[in-house]
Computed example of a mutant assay.
Amino acid sequence: MRIHQLRSLVAIADTGSVRGAARMLNASPAAITQSLQQMEKDLKIQLVARAASGVTLTADGRALLEHARLIVGQLARAHQAIDAMRAETGGRLSIAVTAWVAMTFLPETVVRFRQRMANVQLEFFEGLLAIANPRLRDGSLDIYIGRQAPGNTTSMFTHKPLFSSTRAIVARRGHPRAESRTLAELLDLDWLVALDPETEGLAPYKMFAQHQLPVPRSIHYLHSLTVAVALLQRTDMVSIFPWPLVELCASRDSLCAIPVREQLDESTVGIITRAGEPLSAAGSCFIDCLVESIRDETGPGARDRDRVMTSVEIQI
Rank of each mutant, 00 (worst) to 15 (best):
I316S: 08
R92L: 08
A149N: 13
L93T: 00
R173K: 11
Q315N: 08
I169Q: 00
Q74V: 01
R2V: 15
K44R: 13
Q74L: 09
D142Q: 04
L192R: 01
A132M: 07
G16N: 10
R77H: 09
H67Q: 08
T166H: 07
V260T: 06
A30P: 00
Y144P: 00
C285V: 09
S254H: 14
L232N: 01
D83I: 04
T98L: 11
H211S: 07
Y205V: 15
A228S: 12
E292K: 09
N133E: 15
V238S: 00
L183S: 08
G151A: 13
R147K: 08
R23S: 13
S53M: 04
W243N: 13
S284W: 04
R92M: 10
V120W: 02
A84H: 14
T15A: 02
M207W: 01
A281F: 06
C256T: 14
S311W: 05
V269G: 00
F208G: 07
L9T: 10
I95E: 06
P204G: 10
L279N: 07
R2F: 13
A194W: 07
W243V: 03
A149R: 10
P259D: 05
Q263R: 12
R92F: 06
R217H: 13
M24P: 02
V229C: 01
E247F: 00
V110I: 14
V110H: 02
T310Q: 15
L248E: 07
P134Q: 11
F105W: 14
L129C: 11
R261L: 10
A84L: 10
Q115Y: 06
P278C: 04
T15H: 03
I287F: 13
N133D: 14
L57E: 02
A99H: 15
